[in-house]
Design a protein around this nucleic acid. Structure first.
Lengths: 175, 175
DNA sequence: TATTGTTATACTCTATAACTATA
DNA sequence: TATAGTTATAGAGTATAACAATA
């Protein structure tokens, strides 16, 4: 981090602007010369960039089956908790119930999941995968594992555990 | 992670659905009982949750000055690189130049930054903070430091370095 | 009264195409 | 031709309010 010195910023400023307040033209710096102002020391910046890179890879990896991260998480949680309701699912994954409606409509349209009227509480729907959904989920899971391996390929098992544990501590301390 | 057993999922399934294919009603499980299917072992899930928690805290902390994460990053990069162009700024922060237009309009409206016509290349604008922008940025920076301290309060210096380094390796290996 | 699922709506972020003025 | 800035637009993701049915 000390590689980015205020000195180099001052130099660019001088080169570009000449004396104070004068904005005479100068050749534009290449992107690589831009001083990112220690943004790489900001946890928010680094975590955000990592999240974007990881989601991009996930989306690309599962593009052949047209499944996005939120859809994948919904499907595996339904698979592990057959019969759970939309409200429960939303609370578990921090998805507003209003926003689950469209997702579940889409998963039903694709015959991956279904809503079953619950006789016990007729306000709620019990959620289940279809047989086809269970079958497809195996394919999704295989692709997700492929993605996971690529995203963590430069980490050994201990490093991955450390990374997840540190992030979990950050989340718990803020949540 | 081994605390979440497939056994408990099977138990819920049995309790809820009775025999295979029958969906007799049962009291809905509480959200805490939902099996998250080892989502906490998925780097994407954990990083996404951390990013949401961190951004939420950043936005709340800087709400009094009405500055969002992307605005803050734009302001500190302009401060460190006075005279850089919109294209350079966008490349440095991975913001599409079309999406920078609105942000810079807003920052100009608030008299924090300004576009200066470049005589050298009349297509481009040299970006600068206003004196008021430089003054306000000190306040923004103080609040951002407060946020950073809160987000990392459970990590010591070595742990924070480790976390940022591991995330950086993930980004580099995917990017 | 409170909760479930739904509709409608709005706001942010992100992405692309096309235009203009310059180079 | 290529680039800088802009406009228009569209798609996700996320948030709230209000409603009908039900508890």
């Amino acid at each position: 981090m000390s590689g980015i010195s205020p000195r180099s910023a001052r130099r660019r400023h001088a080169r570009r602007n000449g004396a104070e307040g004068a904005f005479a033209g100068a050749p534009p710096a290449r992107a690589g010369e831009i001083d990112l102002a220690r943004l790489s020391d900001h946890i928010g910046y680094v975590v955000r960039r990592a999240q974007l890179a990881i989601f991009k890879d996930f989306i690309q990896t599962l593009a052949p089956v047209d499944i996005r991260p939120a859809q994948y998480s919904v499907l595996i949680v339904i698979a592990r908790n057959p019969g759970l309701t939309q409200a429960e699912l939303g609370r578990a994954l921090a998805i507003k119930r209003a926003n689950l409606v469209g997702m579940l409509n889409e998963l039903e349209r694709r015959k991956l999941a279904r809503r079953v009227s619950s006789p016990a509480d007729r306000r709620s729907h019990a959620l289940h995968l279809t047989p086809q959904g269970r079958e497809m989920l195996e394919r999704f899971h295989a692709l997700a594992l492929e993605h996971e391996a690529r995203a963590t390929r430069t980490l050994d098992a201990a490093e991955k555990r450390t990374l997840l544990a540190l992030l979990d501590r950050v989340v718990r301390s803020l949540g």
